[in-house]
Amino acid sequence: MGSKFVVADPGLCIGCETCMAGCMMKHAVPGDVEKPRLNLVKTLSVSAPIVCHQCADAPCVAACPEGALYFAEDRVAMNQERCIGCRSCVLACPYGAVQIDPVKGVATMGNLSMESPQKAFIVKCDLCYDREAGPVCVSVCPTNSLLVVDEEELVERQRQRRTRAAVASSAFSSVPLNSEL
């Protein structure tokens, strides 16, 4: 437990793909794959980027025979070295948020650098764990429609909803409540 995830508010999302651009730029470094970890989906009434939920009981982790996906402190993390490209995680993920991409590796021998055979690479949100300011998509969204949901955020939302439910329950009180209060 204790994992965090990025989620979009579909009312505030304007479908502009700035989150995807920010994500690609973050991952445009050697040894990484320059692909967006969020995928914008548009239906008649909803626009929202869909991204890994860092599930507490993640099907992708369970499906990986090599332990390339595993639970880190606050996310589902990846060990790219172990990935064999079997794509079981792709099949297992209910959000369609995991992708396996082939990348060409580079092997060095002395001064020589050679292209090594294709290597499989897991393309999935890593919550920008190595970025101090947190996920880049959240920072760049021009309408602030993305947020990081953590334990605190969930507790706060639950608290608000319980309060609202309690207030509403006055409607079915079997004895009249003091309306002057």
Partner: peptide, 8 residues
């Protein structure tokens, strides 16, 4: 704020 074109 910037959109994707301004940003990238």
């Amino acid at each position: 704020e910037l959109c994707l074109k301004g940003l990238s």
